[in-house]
């Protein structure tokens, strides 16, 4: 099974491109101090808002800081936000989903009703309200995004658990007297992890988009820390004179999100046996 998935993934050029983009981002984020041409926070009063040139490939911002260097450091922020937010949503989603799917009955009804309620709230409104009240900042954003994006995972895990709970290996684990937590986490969860893993990859992309939106509104990562979203805010306030502040950071978000989406979709196709025959 694993080799089939790998072969199919390798044949899917788009997924492979997505994977390469994601790996490149990790490399850029890790090597940020080495590859940045300038210190991202270094202010140059003599060279504010200078257009892209050989000294500053992507130009400078309103304080004369090098845009390319700030974007390289911004990659760290988006990686961090993506993974921590998705980590939080995975933990919550797996707990709720597995309890609902394993126990069924009243627990299932209550949890699923809660999921429906969360899905009916315009989440971005809620995120905005909470962030405005508790104060902006990278940790707050990651926590709030995580707390408002676990519903899909919960549904997936529940569905997997519903089909798994009457299988022989679960029944035998139960008759051996293993604890419920152990059965759920060690025996059932690994069998239902594939779709969850894929939705997590797509979730990283979604979290990066939300973070950039919040930062753009001034409620996300706070300057002087560079994030792609808050460079775009400068782009908006200097829209008449400095197009490079708008174009490049958005392009970085686009490529990043595209990378995660392509990888996630490619993996989904690769593990979906229904699609195996016709390609």
């Amino acid at each position: 099974m694993k080799s089939v998935v790998w072969t199919r993934l390798r044949r899917n050029k788009l997924a492979l491109a997505g994977g390469i983009i994601v790996i490149m981002l990790f490399v850029v984020a890790l090597l940020a101090p080495v590859i940045s041409p300038y210190n991202p926070d270094e202010i140059d009063a003599g060279g504010i808002l200078s257009p892209p040139a050989s000294s500053h490939w992507l130009g400078t911002d309103d304080l004369g800081r090098d845009v390319l260097s700030r974007m390289i450091y911004g990659a760290r922020i988006s990686l961090l936000v993506g993974f921590v937010a998705v980590g939080i949503s995975l933990i919550i989603g797996i707990i709720f989903g597995s309890v609902a799917g394993y126990y069924g009955g009243l627990a299932d009804r209550i949890i699923m009703r809660f999921v429906d309620i969360m899905l009916s709230i315009p989440t971005f409104f809620l995120i905005l309200a909470v962030i405005a009240f508790v104060g902006p900042g990278i940790w707050n954003i990651m926590i709030v995004i995580g707390l408002t994006s676990w519903m899909g995972v919960a549904r997936l895990v529940r569905a997997e658990f519903l089909t798994l709970r009457n299988r022989e290996f679960v029944l035998s684990a139960q008759s051996l007297g293993l604890s419920r937590t152990r059965i759920m986490m060690r025996h059932m969860l690994p069998n239902g992890m594939a779709p969850v893993f894929i939705s997590a990859i797509l979730g990283v992309a979604a979290a990066i988009l939300v973070e950039s939106g919040l930062s753009f509104l001034g409620l996300g990562v706070q300057p002087p820390t560079a994030s792609w979203g808050n460079i775009l805010t400068l782009g908006k306030s200097n829209i008449e004179i400095a197009w490079w502040l708008s174009v490049y950071p958005g392009l970085a978000i686009l490529v990043t999100v595209l990378g995660y989406n392509l990888l996630g979709e490619g993996l989904r196709d690769a593990i979906d046996p229904r699609l195996w025959e016709n390609r």
């Binding site: 788009l14 939106g213 775009l232 782009g235 978000i253």
Partner: peptide
């Protein structure tokens, strides 16, 4: 489709405004 999915809407808005 993949580009439309991945592009932040506020960025597209900025580009179109420019």
């Amino acid at each position: 489709v993949f580009t439309g999915f991945a592009a932040p809407s506020f960025w597209l808005a900025l580009l179109l405004m420019i």
